[in-house]
Every structure is written in structure tokens, then in C-alpha cells.
């Protein structure tokens, strides 16, 4: 009987070791940076694999009204105490956000600032979706808001635009790529479970990014900026604090 050969295995091990470097290819300004950090390279691989393999614009599951569940509010539950924006937020809150404006600027043809009423007058979308927190818990809630796409289109997205950055009253800064920004379920929500968005859940307006983990759905929106290049937001951004920027996981 012929013995199975052991030699191809040795040749295989040696060749694998020498070709591992090929995987560490460079990246452009339209990719999240890795800073040469191996974990960020893994994050980039996951992001690229999702964008390559998953059909774009698939809708996240929408649930029934009866599925709506209890939901904890975590992170910032009231930005009034924030050193920089807290006093402004408190003033806006006292006036029930009548003076609140959302500037939409950056790589757009016509920079605009929306009032809450203007956003509410635009065609709305209501969706009952699952909030998936990075911590491991989940909750189902009904969200009502205006598709981010409509807001961006009314400001006129430039053809060079690649990312949308969210700035919040609690100092939170984050961004998503244009594919998620134009997703039909990515909305700027002002309503939750048939009521005005509670303060603890991000009043007066929060993002809902249903194809990513909960932390990408920025609460307490203050400003939206469209950019042509990736913005890591420096020391305040996710990446430099050791978190994955892409959280479609």
C-alpha cells in the first residue's frame, strides 16, 4: 500500500510563511486608516469583505408593532452637562428645540440648515427595527424620521462625496460611508414608538443606521458634514480610541 507523502506538507508550510506579506496591501484616502495596527487591518478586511460580498442596500428586518420591546438608554442620556455644547443644548431644550437647526454642509452644492419642523414636513419613514448594541443586548423599537438620503439630496450631494460625518451635542463624532448614508433605512429619527424622541434616546434628532451596530446611530445630532475623504476625527474619533469605525460586523 502506498504511504501518503508527508513532503508536500513541508513545502506548503514554507511557501505559506513566505507569501503572508502579500495580504498587507496599502490603502487609499477613501478607506479607514490602519496606522499599521494589526487589529485595524482586520477591521479593514471585514469592511472590504462586506462591501465586496454583501449585496448593497438590502433592508434590515422590520418587525411588527407587537414586537416592540423595552429598551435601555446608555451612553450619554442628557448632553446638558457637556463642557462645550452642554449650555447650548440646555437652552435649546428649554425652548423645546424650536431654535434648534441642523446644518448640512461640506461636499454639497447648497449648504443648508434644517429646523425640526422643516424636517418633519419632509416625506417621512417609519420603521420597526432591532437595535443591536455592541455590548451584546438588543431591543426592538419604532423609529420615525426623514431618510438621510432626502436631506442630503436637498442639499445636493457632490459627485466626489464619499462619507457623511455626524457631530453631536455630547461631543460624539462619527461617520458612515455613502453606501450606508444612502441606504433606504438610514433615517434621521425625531420619533420613537409614536412619541417625540425622548432626551435619553437622543432628542431632538438621532441617526438610525440599521445595517450597523447601535453605536453608529449617533444621538443628539448637531451638525452633518459630507466629505470626499475619510475623516478619522483625530483623538476624538473611534479609530484612535481603539474601536472599529465600521460596525456592520
Amino acid at each position: 500500500m502506498k504511504q501518503p507523502s508527508r513532503m508536500p506538507r513541508r513545502a506548503f508550510i514554507t511557501s505559506m510563511a513566505s507569501s503572508a506579506g502579500v495580504l498587507l496591501a496599502g490603502c487609499s484616502q477613501t478607506d479607514p486608516p490602519t496606522y499599521g495596527h494589526v487589529l485595524r487591518m482586520g477591521d479593514l478586511l471585514t469592511y472590504k469583505a462586506h462591501r465586496l460580498l454583501l449585496p448593497a442596500q438590502s433592508l434590515a428586518r422590520e418587525y411588527d408593532y407587537a414586537d416592540i420591546s423595552s429598551v435601555p438608554a446608555i451612553g450619554t442620556t442628557n448632553p446638558s452637562g457637556h463642557k462645550e455644547h452642554g449650555p447650548v443644548y440646555e437652552r435649546l431644550l428649554a425652548n423645546r428645540f424650536a431654535d434648534w437647526r441642523l446644518p448640512v454642509e461640506g461636499s454639497v452644492a447648497r449648504p443648508l440648515a434644517f429646523s425640526l419642523d422643516e424636517l418633519k414636513r419632509m416625506p417621512s419613514r417609519t420603521q420597526i427595527t432591532r437595535h443591536t448594541c455592541e455590548e451584546g443586548w438588543s431591543a426592538i423599537a419604532q423609529w420615525t424620521g426623514v431618510p438621510l438620503r432626502s436631506v442630503l439630496e436637498s442639499a445636493g450631494i457632490r459627485s466626489t462625496a464619499r462619507f457623511v460625518q455626524f457631530y453631536a451635542y455630547d461631543g460624539w463624532v462619527d461617520g458612515i460611508d455613502m453606501l450606508d448614508a444612502l441606504h433606504p433605512q438610514t433615517i434621521l429619527a425625531y420619533g420613537m414608538n409614536g412619541r417625540d424622541l425622548p432626551i435619553s434616546h437622543g432628542a431632538p434628532l438621532r441617526a438610525r443606521v440599521e445595517t450597523q451596530l447601535g453605536y453608529k446611530s449617533t444621538k443628539f445630532l448637531r451638525r452633518i458634514v459630507v466629505t470626499d475623504h475619510f475623516d478619522d476625527h483625530g483623538a476624538r474619533g473611534f479609530i484612535q480610541n481603539g474601536w472599529s469605525w465600521y460596525a456592520g460586523i
Binding site: D43, S70, V71, P72, T77, E134, E135, P198, S244
Partner: peptide
């Protein structure tokens, strides 16, 4: 359904743990 605020600090090392 109800909501409630969690204002205490929790142990969370998911930044590196999930990426790893």
C-alpha cells in the same frame, strides 16, 4: 415597553476584543 437610563460605568473592553 419601558425605557430606563443606565448612567453607571460598566466594564467594557470590546474595542480590542471584538476586533481581535
Amino acid at each position: 415597553p419601558v425605557t430606563a437610563e443606565r448612567n453607571f460605568h460598566i466594564f467594557n473592553q470590546n474595542g480590542w476584543a471584538r476586533s481581535l
